[in-house]
Amino acid sequence: MAGVTLRTQALNAGYGRFHIIFDIDLEVRRGEILVIVGPNGSGKSTLLKTLFGLTKVYSGRVEFEGNDITKLPPHARARLGIAYLPQTNNIFAELTVRENLKMAGYKLRPEIVEERTREVLELFPFLKEKLNSKAKTLSGGQRQLLAMAMALIRRPRLLMFDEPTAGLAPKAAKEVVDRILWLRDELGKTVIWVEQNAKLALEKGDSAVLMVSGRVAYAGPASDLLADKDLGKRYLGLKG
């Protein structure tokens, strides 16, 4: 179907013998933000890792832009245009910002990396002053933005964030969230966003998936889930 960036069908996955997510069916349309919410340990992060090929898939199917990618290793998915930003360790703290950007374009031709680095620096101007500083000198929010900038060097069409605001001060968190919206609005990217702060995510997202105990408890427009007092109260701690 046209317009669908990523789709899963009856996806079962886990780590080794530990089966964690069950019969996942979801769909992300091009240019929208899909938020994945749910209580702690409900399998949100595992689902995201599975979409990037980091877990063991027992059965089911993952399609990216109509192609079956279920069996592809992570680096092959990256090449197809999927970027995965883990919650932590998503940048090289001991490398300078410039080297981080260089690493992001490791497999690209040097002149392309240079050109895209210039573009990315225009989009994230604060990085210009920090080019020769080690990434560990950046603040938590700046690190998330650097990770985003690194992802953009490879021009992905789908970006997947795992709790990008976790542990950030409100101001920094807002900046990161604004950037995620900007990815959709200005660059036309598709985004999958796993978020602990359900209210925030559901307000910003287009569609939503609620995970409970490794299963999809809700899939549909984000606003409907936000309005659903029963589910919201039971699983997301939203006030009725």
Binding site: P74, H75, A78, R79, Y84, P86, N89, N90, I91, F92, A93, E94, L95, M103, A104, Y106, K107
Partner: peptide, 12 residues
């Protein structure tokens, strides 16, 4: 050396 998983995700 710092993060082999991330490096391999970058295509190293």
């Amino acid at each position: 050396i710092e993060n082999p998983d991330l490096a391999s995700a970058m295509g190293v």
